[in-house]
Design a protein around this nucleic acid. Structure first.
Length: 482
RNA sequence: GGCGCCAUCGUCUAGCGGUUAGGACACCGGGUUCUCAUCCCGGCAACCGGGGUUCGAUUCCCCGUGGCGUCACCA
């Protein structure tokens, strides 16, 4: 079978992790079968449409590396890929249904339908439109809604994720095919488009599972072969049991990219929410995912979104990246002060912080002192009133003496990492002090922080001039204090 | 409420009749004789409840409970 999958969002806003996962699964199925992945825009609700949403969706998919083979912005042989541009097609199929007696003009206004619904509720009976089906409907003039004339029956069908499903005839009803504004409903539009675009696998969220029987009924009326169906469960918000939504603060996936989450990490993480290959493997490269992903291994229950796990995974990906690659990806994340710095210098700095980086967006806070002097107040405060356990035991003058000694010791160093290490270790013996004390003081003088990358490397990369200047500066800050 | 789906550590999950119920995140200890981080080692922690079926149920069946979805001229 020729495999063609699609992602069919409506342009009503940005894509969040939940939405992108459906796209990812569809993309994976297409790729692993050497098929096509199609982006189709379901823009049939003009009221809900958001300007710029289409471009945003396209950018989101591309920035995660989920390239589509056909879509609104790139075309393809089954275009157009915006439903609003396919109205004539829906009409053609609708007319076919009218001819075969399977569609009719809805004589009621929305208000009247609402009354039926309320009455049923009052009577504690399930509401079915078909109980009010007109006996001799007028000819459809395109100005009212067009309804599907259903033929209620029980269905058993297979869902790649959910397994074998079944329902009785009571869930089948006459739904609207074409709205009075001329646009198709989702229920009609997607069925037509999937057929015309030769989509083999329909992969979508579980909110559609309840309307499957109606689609099955429609496929039959249309004489269209039912595609492979796969319903994936929702991703739940971090708190509560609600599905992840924009209301609950679900972030735009592009926001994650902006914060410095790597696309591969994001993809790995999103795939692993609700899918695994049955082993204990946690990290999957994109190729492995394409190779191993199986719809029938997708979890049937919802998965909760845990950003801490995503953070861990991103750190893992950052650490395993070759320095050159990381360097390229980090380009836009450097602090403002790094503007004039050379690429070589930045790469050296990056090498020092790579293992402690969880997000690229942490780069400024982790590396700022490599590009500008640390805040004098912090240096002074941390030296005068140390938080460090070891440093705390010393008096101000002791620390001052230590820094002076370090400055003198390093004054004629060549500032290679080895030479610095040798000299500072010598000094340790000379001063009869512990690394935890001497190095902590130097570290603060240099970085303005009690934590930094390993000290000798940091000094070496920072260079002789700056290092000595900062030691000197710390010395004068401390003596002012005394 | 009707209909449907789902149910293993706090979280993501492995398990497809017999396991000391495994891994990962998070958390808590310890180690890597410079901090933080990394890395390594260790610890804490789960089969929703009740009935069956079976020599034996986390696993199969039924009921209950709970969660979710849906019942639009939204998708």
């Amino acid at each position: 079978m020729k495999v063609r999958t699609r992602f069919a969002p409506s342009p009503t806003g940005y894509l969040h992790v939940g939405g992108i996962r459906t796209a990812l699964f569809a993309w994976l199925v297409a790729r692993q079968n050497s098929g096509q992945f199609v982006l189709r825009l379901e823009d049939t609700d003009k009221k809900r449409e958001v300007a710029g949403a289409e471009a945003h969706i396209e950018e989101s998919l591309k920035s995660l590396g989920l390239a589509y083979d056909e879509g609104p912005d790139i075309g393809g042989q089954f275009g157009p890929y915006r439903q609003s541009e396919r109205l004539n097609r829906y009409k053609k199929w609708a007319e076919k249904l009218i001819e075969t007696g399977r569609a009719y003009a809805d004589p009621y206004s929305p208000g009247q339908v609402q009354t039926f619904r309320e009455q049923a509720q009052k009577d504690k009976k399930p509401y079915l439109y078909r109980d009010h089906r007109p006996s001799s409907p007028a000819k459809w003039d395109g100005k009212t809604a067009l309804r599907f004339k259903s033929e209620p029956q029980a269905y058993n069908w297979h869902d790649e994720v959910m397994g074998d499903l079944s329902t009785g005839p009571e869930v089948i009803d006459d739904f609207i095919l074409i709205k009075s504004d001329g646009y198709p409903t989702y229920n009609f539009g997607h069925v037509i488009d999937d057929a015309e675009m030769e989509i083999s696998h329909v992969i979508r969220g579980q909110e559609f599972i309840a309307s499957m029987p109606n689609y099955l009924n429609l496929y039959e009326a249309l004489g269209i072969e039912t595609p492979v169906l796969a319903t994936v469960p929702h991703i739940l918000a971090p708190e509560g049991n609600k599905k992840l939504s924009k209301r609950d603060g679900a972030k735009d996936v592009l926001e994650y990219v902006r914060e410095g989450y790597l696309p591969d990490a994001l993809v790995n993480f999103i795939a692993s929410m609700g899918w695994n290959d049955g082993t204990e493997q946690e990290i999957f490269s994109r190729d492995e995912l394409v190779d191993k992903f199986k719809l029938d291994h997708v979890q049937r229950s919802g998965a909760r979104f845990d950003e801490r796990r995503l953070e861990w995974m991103n750190g893992h990906y950052i650490r395993s990246l070759p320095l050159d690659d990381l360097s390229k990806k980090a380009t836009s994340f450097w602090p403002a002060a790094a503007k004039g710095a050379s690429q070589e210098y930045k790469t050296e700095v990056l090498k020092l912080v790579q293992e402690r980086l969880k997000l690229l967006a942490e780069l400024p806070q982790l590396t700022g002192f490599f590009f500008e002097e640390p805040f004098a107040g912090s240096v002074k405060d941390l030296l005068a009133n140390p938080v460090d356990k070891q440093l705390k035991k010393l008096s101000g003058p002791d620390i001052l003496k230590m820094l002076e000694a370090a400055h003198n010791k390093l004054a004629d160093s060549d500032f290679s990492q080895n030479d610095i290490a040798g000299r500072l270790n010598d000094l340790l013996a000379e001063l009869n002090t512990k690394p935890g004390i001497l190095f902590a003081a130097v570290r603060i003088a240099i970085s303005g922080s009690p934590a930094s990358p390993q000290l000798f490397g940091t000094l070496s990369v920072l260079g002789k001039d700056k290092s000595l200047m900062r030691l000197q500066r710390a010395i004068s800050l401390l003596s002012q204090n005394a």
